[in-house]
Amino acid sequence: MPVPLLDVNAQNYPLHDGFSAAFERVFKTGHFIMGEEIAAFEREVLPITGASHALSLSSGTDAILLALMALEIGPGDEVLCPAFTFFATAGCVSRVGATPVFVDVLPDSFNIDIVDARAKLTSKTRAIIPVHLFGQCADMEAVMELANQHSLYVIEDAAQAIGAARHGTLAGSIGHFGCYSFFPSKNLGGLGDGGLLVANDNDLALRAKSLRNHGMEPKYYHSHIGGNFRMDALQAAFLRVKLPHYASYTEKRQANAAFYQEHLAKLPGVSFSSEASGTRLVLPQCGEGNTHIWNQFTLRVTGGRRDALKQHLLDRKIGCEIYYPVTLDQQACFAHLPESSLRGCEVSHRHAEEVLSIPIYSELNEPQKFEVVEAIAAFLN
C-alpha cells in the first residue's frame, strides 16, 4: 500500500469544522493583521515553550533573522552554527552581514559538536546557534557553558523541536532567544508559513517586538530599522484550533518511533550504532536526558547504499526524503567564505551521504508502519 512521507490532510480534515469556525470568526471581524487572535495565540502557545515572552511571526526563518537583529549581530561578527541543518540557520546569519562559521555535528544525535565549536572560536565570535535537529535538543549544558565562558549570545533554532525538552527544560527557553516554525510538516503545523520567537529577557523581547513591525513604537515613530515579520491573524486562528491537539500529535509520533525502533532493530545489519560489527543501517535514538518529539525519523544507511534504499522505497510507493544532501559548508553561496569558516565538518559530510528519513507523522496506521518495516527488511535481505 502507498505510504506518504507526510499526509497533512489526515490531520487537518478532522478539524475542518474548527478551521471553518476560525475563518468565519476572523472574517467577520475584518481584523486580519495583529489584534486579539495574535495576542490569544501567543498566550496559549507560551506553556509549550517554557519562556516568558512569545512573538508570533511570519516564519521560522524570520524568527532566526529577528533574533539576530535584536541582538545587533552584523558585519564583522562571526556566528557558530552547525554545518548539517536546514539552510535558514546560516542564511539568516549572512543576511544580517555576519559570517557563519560552520561547526561539525555529533554522529548519533545529528546536533552540534561543542568540542568542534570551541575549536572554532575567535575574537570575532558573538553568538552560537544550536539547532535541535529532527526533534531533540542539542547538549544545551555544554552550549551554555561555552557561551557563558566567552560572553556569546545563544539563539536556539528549535524549528523542528517545539515541546522537546532537555532534562525537563523546554527547547527554546534556555538561550537568549528560541525560534520555532509552524511549517505544515512540523509537529504543530499551520496551514501555511508561520513562526514564533520566544525570550525570557523582558528588554530583548520588547526590542524584538518593535523590530517585528518595522521598528515602530509608537505608530509611525521608528527608533530602529526593523522588518515586516508579522503573522497573519487568520494563521494564528488556525493554529489555535490545532494547539489543543499538540500533545496527542507528539505522543503518536513518539509511539511510531518506538514501533520502528522495536521492529527494525530485529533486522540483520540494523543497530543503534555505526560502530557495531556488520551494521548496514543505523537507527536514530533519543539522547540521555532528552524528550524527543520525532519531527523526523532519520536512518543512516552505511556502505554507500542510501540512494539504493531510497529508490527501493519509492518503487514501493513509500515516501522518504534526504534531510540534507548538501551540508551548509558545501553550498555554492558560501564558497566565498574564508577557509576557517568551512573546514573540519567530516561527520556532517558523512551524514549527508547516509541519511534517509521515513514516514513518522502522527496519523500513520499500523498496516502502514508494517509496510515500511517490511520494505526495509526486503532491502536488507
Rank of each mutant, 00 (worst) to 15 (best):
R306T: 05
A237Q: 01
T279V: 09
T279Y: 00
T279G: 01
L281N: 02
L281K: 03
N256E: 06
R280H: 11
L283T: 12
S274E: 15
E275S: 15
A308R: 10
P244R: 06
T291Y: 15
R305H: 12
Q254R: 15
L239P: 09
R253M: 08
T250S: 03
I293S: 04
R300Y: 04
S273M: 02
V241H: 08
T291M: 11
V241R: 04
I318M: 00
K242M: 13
G269R: 03
P244S: 04
A233W: 00
R240K: 14
H312K: 09
I293K: 04
T298I: 11
P268Y: 01
W294S: 06
L299V: 01
L264A: 07
S277L: 08
A258E: 13
T279W: 05
K252N: 13
E275L: 14
A233D: 07
L309D: 08
R316W: 00
I293E: 04
I293V: 15
G319N: 02
V270I: 05
S248I: 13
Q311D: 12
Y249W: 09
P284K: 03
A265P: 09
R300E: 12
N290D: 14
L283M: 07
K252S: 15
G303A: 05
C286V: 15
Q296T: 15
Q261E: 12
K317V: 14
E275P: 12
F238C: 04
D307Q: 12
V282Y: 00
G269N: 00
H245F: 11
H292D: 12
V282F: 00
G278E: 04
G303Q: 07
T279R: 00
G289M: 02
L299E: 02
R306A: 08
S277G: 05
S271E: 09
Q311E: 10
L234F: 09
S248A: 15
R280C: 10
Y249K: 11
Q296N: 13
G303L: 02
G289F: 02
F238E: 07
L283G: 07
E262W: 01
A237H: 02
S273A: 08
Q254K: 11
W294G: 02
N295S: 14
T279S: 12
V301F: 07
K252P: 08
L299P: 00
H292T: 11
W294P: 05
K310D: 05
T279C: 07
V301M: 12
T302E: 13
L283R: 10
F259T: 09
Y246Q: 09
A236D: 08
N256D: 03
A265K: 09
S277I: 14
D315P: 09
L267S: 01
T250D: 08
Q254Y: 03
G287K: 14
K266L: 15
L309A: 05
A236C: 10
I293C: 07
P284Q: 00
D307W: 01
T250M: 03
E288A: 15
E262Q: 13
L299Q: 04
R316K: 11
S273V: 06
P268H: 03
R306E: 05
G289W: 03
T291C: 05
H263D: 01
L264I: 13
S248L: 14
Q254E: 05
P244D: 10
Q296I: 02
E275F: 07
D315Q: 13
